[in-house]
Amino acid sequence: MKYIAIALIVLLAACTWAACSKSVPVDEDGLLITTRRDCFVSSFELLGTDYVSVRSGAATIDTTAQTVKVTVLFGSDLKHLYPQFSLAQDCKLNPKITGFVDFSDTLNPKKWTVISGDRQVKKEYSVILSVQHR
């Protein structure tokens, strides 16, 4: 009888430990790592210092060439633009966008890497800016 009680306690402890252990993987940002392998930019926005869009038209996203081409309004302050990416489900972006970005060096496009939900696929996108003529 005594041994059965001990065995039950051990079993209960094992079950409790199993219930508390995490089985879902998260990455270094605390984001869920999933099984999705999709890895692309689905849409792109660019805001000015007034947080109003400075695009003169829709951004052209080429998922094969991994480029985002966007024409901004004449007179936009290229040193202070706020890019916003929409990504495939569970993807994340590197480096993170934390504020305004300087796009004034149009000969050297800014680059961001899209990382898939399973964190195994990485694709580097170039954001190529052109300025609308007056």
């Binding site: 003169s56 309004l73 609308q132």
Partner: peptide, 10 residues
């Protein structure tokens, strides 16, 4: 009031 760009008030 330009037709080629949004200049407007500046």
């Amino acid at each position: 009031n330009l037709t080629t760009s949004a200049f407007n008030h500046a």
